[in-house]
Design a protein around this nucleic acid. Structure first.
Lengths: 245, 245
DNA sequence: GCCGGAATGTGACCGCAATCACATATCCGC
DNA sequence: GCGGATATGTGATTGCGGTCACATTCCGGC
């Protein structure tokens, strides 16, 4: 079994070999499959790197296959004809992108844009489906992965659908982001690499509103912002804004 | 293979035997599995009927297993602590309910309420997971089912997140509902068995707003309502409200 | 056919947040 | 370190739609 090997890409990105199998998301997905399955997986997988701004796939495009994100971050979004955009999530390394579309055979339902130099493995739809047919265990893993995605997307939907004010949605967004990205040593502190515009698109609001409410939060000492670094000063205070649930 | 058999339930519901395997959703899910898989499926399945108002499962409850809806309709909803409710969809016969939670092992993410006398088959979580482990093909079918659910939920999310006005959301809702439930012979006509309150909960709006906008639609001759029967008089007119997309 | 509860219709009010229109401030490549 | 693009901050305005408070109508059960 090959161990992880790193080299340099043109974008100054760490290239990771054989990232199909495990480096991220311990004990998930395609780890612990029988050797012949892993062998087969390696054969049908091809790796590539993408510069900032590239698209792995675009909403509405017929599904070509799945991408396994090895390094970098990818923005998943959907947009309406009149230019409005809804950002679903920022994917982290280890995630499978384009899975529902590839499995169901329909078009990609979101657009995947590279927000920072990224490495990803690709498996074409036919190869992937054949692989799943042959290795039932893998199909079950895929079902689990889909269930997780489903529940994540669902939580997102709840946030947007069930909260009243933009202030509430923003508070929830910040708390969520914090709980996933914080390096806490006592206080919760993390990097928020999104622009106000993008935050607005995540919570279904407008750029100005995000700026204003964020200013509000600072004024009320709920949090502190320095560059892209955010520190929660009064987490309970923020949580109080989520009224109930 | 046993054919469909009907008897009478206490609720005056048609009881359908062996509905695991096929009656609805042609060529989907568990049809065309090898005989031993079908055999096994029959062993782990138990059937039950539910009166109006019953809950198959409740949001937050640890997953017990999946339900296969044989007859009747079930409302899937989620609600926040302060009493607001978001209805996700009304499930039709043939659907699998509670699948993501059962596969992922987390809690049910929605509540499933019976809105009319219903028959459903149940498979416990452990039985179901063992079954999938043993029959890889079935796991793949399940993955497909999950993909479909995902894409449906996603479309719902887009509707709520990307449209500006309540009027737009209502128009979209009516057109969607019409395209799924209409018995068209020239004009589009269908039964809308939901109260205004429920419609409001589906589009994330308020009861009064639904009443008002629906009245508006009637006034502008976009549609006609007689009891629970709705007839679209000017479909293009409604579609124009979806601005763009 | 009557009754009670649910569903629907309607007015008044008003607050949130979208939008427009700018003024700064910050970042990044050359 | 300069200059243009991009991001952020802020005021003024406005309308949508939520909420409250009722009136009216519908419907199902006895």
């Amino acid at each position: 079994m090959s161990s992880l090997v790193s080299t340099r890409s043109p974008y100054g990105l760490q290239i990771i070999d054989n990232c199909v199998a495990c480096p991220h998301r311990e004990a998930r997905l395609f780890c612990n499959l029988p050797p012949e399955a892993l062998q087969r997986l390696a054969e049908i997988t091809s790796s590539a790197t993408y510069p900032k701004g590239a698209s792995l796939f675009v909403e509405g495009q017929p599904a070509r296959g799945v991408f396994i994100l090895c390094a970098g971050h990818v923005k998943l979004s959907t947009s309406s004809a009149d230019g409005r955009t809804l950002i679903l999530r920022i994917s982290d390394p280890g995630e499978l992108l384009g899975l529902p579309a590839t499995i169901s055979g329909r078009a990609y339902e979101v657009t995947a844009d590279v927000v920072e130099p990224t490495q990803a493995n690709f498996i074409s739809q036919t190869d992937f489906l054949n692989f799943l047919k042959e290795f039932g265990e893998a199909a079950l893993r895929v079902a689990q992965e889909l269930s997780d995605s489903y529940q994540t997307a669902f939580a997102e939907m709840r946030t947007i659908g069930l909260s009243h004010s933009a202030r509430e949605k923003l508070a929830r967004f910040i708390l969520d982001w914090g709980s996933n990205h914080s390096s806490e040593n006592g206080t919760v502190k993390f990097n928020l690499t999104l622009t106000h515009e993008e935050i607005a698109q995540m919570i279904g609001s407008s750029r100005e509103t995000v700026t204003r409410i964020l200013g509000d939060f600072k004024k009320n000492n709920l949090l502190q912002v320095k560059g892209s670094s955010v520190t929660l000063k009064d987490k309970p205070g923020l949580e109080r804004l989520l009224q109930g649930n």
